[in-house]
Amino acid sequence: MSRLIARLLGRRFDGDKSVDAAVKVDGTYYTAGKMQVAELRKRYYSAPYIITTSWAYKYGAQAASPMLLRRLEVLNPTAGALTFQLALMTATTGTPTTSKAFLAWDTSVGAADLWSWEGEIPLIGRWIHAKASGSGLVLLVVAEEIDA
Protein backbone atom coordinates (compact mmCIF):
# COMPACT_ATOMS: atom_id res chain seq x y z
CA MET A 1 0.00 0.00 0.00
CA SER A 2 1.32 3.43 -0.92
CA ARG A 3 0.27 6.59 0.83
CA LEU A 4 -0.09 10.20 -0.13
CA ILE A 5 -1.08 13.48 1.41
CA ALA A 6 -4.35 14.83 0.03
CA ARG A 7 -6.47 17.85 0.72
CA LEU A 8 -10.19 17.39 0.65
CA LEU A 9 -12.27 20.55 0.67
CA GLY A 10 -14.64 21.10 3.56
CA ARG A 11 -15.52 23.17 6.58
CA ARG A 12 -12.66 23.64 9.01
CA PHE A 13 -13.28 23.83 12.71
CA ASP A 14 -11.58 23.62 16.07
CA GLY A 15 -8.27 25.25 15.39
CA ASP A 16 -5.40 23.06 14.25
CA LYS A 17 -7.07 19.71 14.43
CA SER A 18 -6.05 17.62 11.47
CA VAL A 19 -9.58 16.47 10.78
CA ASP A 20 -12.25 19.03 10.06
CA ALA A 21 -15.99 19.08 10.21
CA ALA A 22 -18.06 16.97 7.93
CA VAL A 23 -19.41 18.64 4.83
CA LYS A 24 -22.64 17.53 3.26
CA VAL A 25 -22.34 16.50 -0.39
CA ASP A 26 -25.29 15.03 -2.23
CA GLY A 27 -27.00 14.19 1.02
CA THR A 28 -24.00 12.53 2.63
CA TYR A 29 -21.62 13.96 5.18
CA TYR A 30 -17.94 13.77 4.36
CA THR A 31 -15.18 14.56 6.76
CA ALA A 32 -12.90 16.99 5.05
CA GLY A 33 -9.75 18.99 5.47
CA LYS A 34 -6.08 18.19 5.31
CA MET A 35 -5.46 14.61 6.24
CA GLN A 36 -3.34 11.68 5.35
CA VAL A 37 -4.94 9.12 3.12
CA ALA A 38 -3.85 5.72 1.98
CA GLU A 39 -3.94 5.10 -1.73
CA LEU A 40 -4.52 1.58 -2.90
CA ARG A 41 -2.67 1.31 -6.13
CA LYS A 42 -3.73 -1.37 -8.53
CA ARG A 43 -1.32 -4.22 -8.87
CA TYR A 44 0.73 -4.29 -12.04
CA TYR A 45 2.08 -7.37 -13.71
CA SER A 46 4.84 -7.76 -16.26
CA ALA A 47 6.78 -10.78 -17.45
CA PRO A 48 8.56 -12.09 -20.55
CA TYR A 49 7.51 -15.34 -22.20
CA ILE A 50 9.29 -17.42 -24.81
CA ILE A 51 7.27 -17.98 -27.98
CA THR A 52 7.79 -21.40 -29.47
CA THR A 53 6.82 -22.90 -32.81
CA SER A 54 3.79 -24.55 -31.22
CA TRP A 55 0.66 -22.83 -29.97
CA ALA A 56 0.70 -22.27 -26.22
CA TYR A 57 -1.03 -19.90 -23.86
CA LYS A 58 1.19 -17.25 -22.36
CA TYR A 59 -0.88 -14.99 -20.16
CA GLY A 60 -4.47 -14.43 -19.16
CA ALA A 61 -6.83 -13.95 -16.26
CA GLN A 62 -9.81 -15.64 -14.72
CA ALA A 63 -13.11 -13.78 -14.70
CA ALA A 64 -12.90 -13.50 -10.92
CA SER A 65 -9.55 -11.70 -11.04
CA PRO A 66 -9.49 -9.76 -14.31
CA MET A 67 -6.51 -7.89 -15.67
CA LEU A 68 -6.27 -5.04 -18.15
CA LEU A 69 -3.72 -5.67 -20.87
CA ARG A 70 -1.67 -2.48 -21.32
CA ARG A 71 1.31 -3.34 -23.47
CA LEU A 72 2.71 -6.18 -25.52
CA GLU A 73 6.13 -6.47 -27.08
CA VAL A 74 7.48 -9.22 -29.29
CA LEU A 75 11.25 -9.04 -29.36
CA ASN A 76 13.54 -10.73 -31.82
CA PRO A 77 17.13 -10.94 -30.58
CA THR A 78 18.08 -13.42 -33.33
CA ALA A 79 19.94 -12.71 -36.57
CA GLY A 80 16.98 -13.36 -38.88
CA ALA A 81 13.39 -12.23 -39.33
CA LEU A 82 10.67 -14.32 -37.70
CA THR A 83 6.88 -14.20 -37.86
CA PHE A 84 4.43 -14.75 -35.05
CA GLN A 85 0.72 -15.15 -34.38
CA LEU A 86 -1.34 -14.11 -31.37
CA ALA A 87 -4.78 -15.39 -30.44
CA LEU A 88 -7.27 -14.58 -27.71
CA MET A 89 -8.97 -17.67 -26.33
CA THR A 90 -11.49 -18.40 -23.60
CA ALA A 91 -9.37 -21.33 -22.39
CA THR A 92 -5.73 -22.07 -21.73
CA THR A 93 -5.87 -25.05 -24.06
CA GLY A 94 -6.81 -25.59 -27.68
CA THR A 95 -5.41 -24.71 -31.06
CA PRO A 96 -6.42 -21.23 -32.22
CA THR A 97 -7.69 -20.59 -35.71
CA THR A 98 -7.90 -17.27 -37.53
CA SER A 99 -11.27 -16.63 -35.89
CA LYS A 100 -9.35 -16.02 -32.67
CA ALA A 101 -6.72 -13.76 -34.29
CA PHE A 102 -5.63 -11.08 -31.86
CA LEU A 103 -3.47 -8.05 -32.69
CA ALA A 104 -1.00 -9.94 -34.88
CA TRP A 105 -1.14 -12.79 -37.38
CA ASP A 106 1.87 -13.90 -39.41
CA THR A 107 3.41 -10.59 -38.43
CA SER A 108 7.11 -10.26 -39.18
CA VAL A 109 9.70 -9.02 -36.73
CA GLY A 110 13.09 -8.23 -38.18
CA ALA A 111 16.42 -9.30 -36.73
CA ALA A 112 17.25 -7.40 -33.54
CA ASP A 113 13.94 -5.60 -33.81
CA LEU A 114 10.65 -5.58 -31.94
CA TRP A 115 6.90 -5.31 -32.49
CA SER A 116 4.92 -3.48 -29.86
CA TRP A 117 1.33 -2.63 -29.02
CA GLU A 118 -0.15 -0.30 -26.42
CA GLY A 119 -3.77 0.12 -25.47
CA GLU A 120 -6.27 -1.44 -23.12
CA ILE A 121 -7.96 -4.78 -23.52
CA PRO A 122 -9.60 -6.51 -20.58
CA LEU A 123 -8.63 -10.09 -19.93
CA ILE A 124 -11.72 -11.47 -18.25
CA GLY A 125 -11.70 -15.21 -18.63
CA ARG A 126 -9.46 -14.72 -21.65
CA TRP A 127 -5.98 -16.03 -22.42
CA ILE A 128 -3.36 -14.92 -24.93
CA HIS A 129 -1.89 -17.74 -27.00
CA ALA A 130 1.18 -17.33 -29.18
CA LYS A 131 3.12 -19.19 -31.85
CA ALA A 132 6.21 -18.30 -33.90
CA SER A 133 7.73 -19.42 -37.20
CA GLY A 134 11.00 -20.19 -35.45
CA SER A 135 12.72 -20.12 -32.11
CA GLY A 136 13.97 -16.99 -30.46
CA LEU A 137 11.03 -14.62 -30.03
CA VAL A 138 10.14 -13.24 -26.62
CA LEU A 139 6.72 -11.88 -25.67
CA LEU A 140 6.63 -9.18 -22.99
CA VAL A 141 3.28 -8.71 -21.27
CA VAL A 142 2.35 -5.69 -19.16
CA ALA A 143 -1.04 -5.75 -17.45
CA GLU A 144 -2.86 -3.93 -14.69
CA GLU A 145 -5.27 -5.27 -12.13
CA ILE A 146 -8.88 -4.16 -12.46
CA ASP A 147 -11.85 -4.66 -10.20
CA ALA A 148 -13.62 -7.99 -10.39
Partner: peptide
Amino acid sequence: LDGDNRLVMQFVTPQYYARSPKV
Protein backbone atom coordinates in the same frame (compact mmCIF):
# COMPACT_ATOMS: atom_id res chain seq x y z
CA LEU B 1 -4.96 4.39 12.10
CA ASP B 2 -1.46 4.23 13.56
CA GLY B 3 -2.56 6.60 16.28
CA ASP B 4 -3.77 9.22 13.81
CA ASN B 5 -7.13 10.15 12.33
CA ARG B 6 -7.20 9.28 8.65
CA LEU B 7 -9.61 8.95 5.84
CA VAL B 8 -8.80 6.50 3.11
CA MET B 9 -9.27 6.93 -0.61
CA GLN B 10 -9.49 3.90 -2.81
CA PHE B 11 -9.05 4.42 -6.53
CA VAL B 12 -11.27 2.10 -8.47
CA THR B 13 -11.56 1.14 -12.11
CA PRO B 14 -14.72 1.15 -14.17
CA GLN B 15 -16.18 -2.16 -15.10
CA TYR B 16 -14.83 -3.70 -18.29
CA TYR B 17 -16.59 -6.37 -20.31
CA ALA B 18 -15.11 -9.56 -21.72
CA ARG B 19 -14.92 -9.67 -25.48
CA SER B 20 -13.39 -12.09 -27.97
CA PRO B 21 -12.13 -11.44 -31.51
CA LYS B 22 -14.97 -11.07 -34.01
CA VAL B 23 -14.82 -11.35 -37.79
